[in-house]
Design a binder for these strands. Sequence first.
DNA 1: CTGAAAGCGCTTACAG
DNA 2: CTGAAAGCGCTTACAG
Lengths: 337, 337
Amino acid sequence: MVCRMKDSKITIADVADALHVSKTTVSRAISGKGRISDETRQRVLSYIEATDFKPNVIAKGLAQKKTYNIALVIPGDCNLVDMPFFQNSMQGICEEASANDYDVMLVPVTGRHSENLERMIANKKVDGVILSRSLVKDTNAAFLKEEKIPFVMMGTSRDAKILQVDNNHRAGCCALVGRILNSGIARIGLIGGSKNYVVNRTRKQGYEDAFLAVGIEQNAALCIENCDSVEKVVSATEKLVRADVGAIVCMDDFVCSVVLQVLAEKKIQVPQQMQIASFYDSTLLKHAKPAVTSLWFDDRALGVLTCKILLQYIQGIKVESKTLLGYELVIRESTLF
Amino acid sequence: MVCRMKDSKITIADVADALHVSKTTVSRAISGKGRISDETRQRVLSYIEATDFKPNVIAKGLAQKKTYNIALVIPGDCNLVDMPFFQNSMQGICEEASANDYDVMLVPVTGRHSENLERMIANKKVDGVILSRSLVKDTNAAFLKEEKIPFVMMGTSRDAKILQVDNNHRAGCCALVGRILNSGIARIGLIGGSKNYVVNRTRKQGYEDAFLAVGIEQNAALCIENCDSVEKVVSATEKLVRADVGAIVCMDDFVCSVVLQVLAEKKIQVPQQMQIASFYDSTLLKHAKPAVTSLWFDDRALGVLTCKILLQYIQGIKVESKTLLGYELVIRESTLF
DNA sequence: CTGAAAGCGCTTACAG
DNA sequence: CTGAAAGCGCTTACAG
């Protein structure tokens, strides 16, 4: 097949001609900027409505030195359990961008460094960028800072100079663990993912907060981090069973599904002999039995807010340097409270 | 926080001045188009190399009436099992786009109709679009055809006028079912997903092909389609067990995981009493026991090729109207061949 | 309130 | 081989 283009020529000059006004006037009617009589504006507006004329955003951008694009940097190699997060937040971002006549360019990055991001910045194709789910050592953030490109981290960063918006994993985890503690169980195991991700460290802090709040000393041996493979989760579970914990908090739903399998094999009853709770109320656990008590975050809302903040920042509006969104504790059969 | 922009001013005019040549010459040296002496070209090239000058792609695009962007339309509401497909193919698309100095704009669509796609087209922000995993009734394809926007379907469409590139699900399924038939089992159940997706219909055709090839008459009752919920998959599995099939082919890995659960509960041994095979070798089944025999497709390569074809088509190069990529049959413990 | 003109940063006939 | 000029489709001081 061979491509046959069509061009729809109509420009701002055409409508100016048709209406016997200047391009300036048409431009002003559309943008709403600059003095113009109500009558003229209406005349222009109804004409472009009727002819379905849409000004060329690219040309507009060139004149204004804007692109009306933002970049979204997402990991090209995340695992299944994290995909819904990206999917949902992406959705929110695109929606909010659209509402502001912005579009979203995709930059998947594998490994630490992103040449694609650099190329996009060098080519000046975006006005700002959204980084997602940061690593403890985030070279992309460093690069953008260096280049003075407006960006916001959808997630948490240690660097207070970085704009960030995140779900409140810490408070959520604290609330969850607090509920378990209050139900009379003090030996609570935690199985965590890779500490390379800031989010896993943040969740851990919530766990600690909960113990501090009730004044019970926390047993470091019950907190097993860096479980990034099935084998590690299995052995962590076995260790916690031997340590006679009354509950296990899983830092993600993948960890949780493995824990449930191990317990099933050992014929350990959930929740009677062992209570289980998880982070992220994902489809991965949708059909687990018993149904798992879990934290829930509104990823889509996170995307919307992140995009909103970036767009405001780009426009020179003052924004909060760090925003935290809420959480929801969804209580199901895997716990006794 | 308040945004402080930087502008890196340097333009083609600056380098022209610095080198005492015209903008035309600089432009020609960069693009490689138009007559220019080797010496001049080298002089320009080494200067822009040294100063790290990158021409503004947006301005270039405006002058050439191109955007150097393509849109990628993906479902905003796909289920977990399909996410790796989108993740991987997206990766391939971005990679190939990058290699051609193109960028990828994200258009998540929910429901049938996409206002975001229409807006993007109206705003002339892309040179072409990639549609993914088509529905039987694809309004976006119809819209793009109408608008005469170059696009290619990453997947299969009934409409031969639509450029398409897909993994060969049909041949893959045929090979898989053929292997089972050859192993002496004629009663083979099929549990399929929603018939709204072209891909599920294509797979079904492969199943039929296999029976035709060996001349065994196929029993329509063993072919249960439209199983888009756990309940339906469960009841389909039970029905097939009652029908005494020797093998079940699952049309996706979610279906397969449910089938395995049901069989485990019924204490039916896999593969001794029932052979199982699945489509898509996904992480969802990574830890299934027994390990599941499955088809594997190179999603990333699919993305690369799809993007390549779109880009060629945009450039007016003649392309194949339909391309099919291969498959791999990964044989594991859940089958006896 | 309205418009002519210059400009955003490139490309590309056209002429030399 | 090289360059002046017009143009891509907008915006925006500036002047009236």
